[in-house]
Amino acid sequence: MSLTTLLLLIGAGIGLVWSFIKDRGKTIESIRVAKSRFVGTAVEIVGVLALVGLFFAFVPPNSIKELLGGANVFLSGLYGSLIGTVTIIPAFVAFPLSASLVEKGAHLVAVAAFITTLTMVGFATAPIEMDHFGKRFTLVRNGLSFAFALVIAMGMMIFL
């Protein structure tokens, strides 16, 4: 369990205890709200995660490496951001993976694009996002994030 996860759990625990001391009724209310939201979302999240897991079992990591080290830096950056978009992996796995990609010859620009879309753009999580915020918001936010990931990656090319 990572440190941030632990902090989150502690935060929720302290919040609950504080709430319970101040007002029992409100606390029970908040747990009811939490429960109904959790039930509504959990099934969908499990479905998404299962599909992503299957996708990664199907596509070997080696083919990802080949795409990111091409002669055309811009194209590698584009591939990087596309791969980051469809991928869900924890960021602390993504950094060692990125480092090994760079060793194997991937461009830093492609890696920056990959990391940025990996974290900000969610193709696989889009159905969950739509559930919470609607279609238009989801499309606009993800579209803009994708475009900015490319801009950030190109910026890296200038500064590095």
């Binding site: 369990m1 996860t5 989150l8 759990l9 935060g11 929720a12 625990g13 919040g15 609950l16 709430s19 409100k26 606390t27 209310e29 908040s30 747990i31 009811r32 709200v33 939490a34 429960k35 939201r37 959790f38 959990a42 999240i45 499990v46 995660l49 924890p90």
Partner: peptide
């Protein structure tokens, strides 16, 4: 595993925000 570690706390916090 990651999801189970995180989500209950996340939903509890969102519930507390709603009420308090």
């Amino acid at each position: 595993k990651e999801m189970i570690e995180i989500l209950p706390a996340v939903f509890v916090i969102s519930g507390l925000i709603d009420v308090w």
